[in-house]
């Protein structure tokens, strides 16, 4: 255990705040991403696709996906 001296409380609180900020931001982007993917999937399930995906489907109806890949957006 590291000896932090008489102001250990201030040091530990600072590191706790930093951990909270880093974890909070990470959770925010991860949960937001999941929620957005779910919403996008729900829209695609209703037959709503982006213009580029519809154009791709028209050009190659045998091979093109009916909905755009969320990762590539293609």
């Amino acid at each position: 255990m590291i000896a932090l001296g008489p102001y250990a409380g201030f040091i530990l609180l600072s590191y706790a705040a930093a951990a909270l900020a880093a974890l909070g931001l990470t959770l925010w982007v991860v949960l937001d991403h999941r929620r957005l993917l779910k919403t996008m999937a729900a829209l695609e399930a209703r037959g709503l696709t982006r213009r580029s995906a519809r154009a791709a489907a028209r050009l190659a109806p045998e091979t093109a996906p009916t909905a755009p890949s969320l990762e590539t957006g293609a």
Partner: peptide, 23 residues
């Protein structure tokens, strides 16, 4: 890392908004 991830989310959010407007 967070900025790239947040940008990815923002692009998805705008695509969802555009699809919603189309609908």
């Amino acid at each position: 890392t967070l900025h790239l991830a947040a940008m990815r989310n923002e692009i998805l959010r705008r695509r969802i908004r555009a699809l919603g407007l189309t609908a």
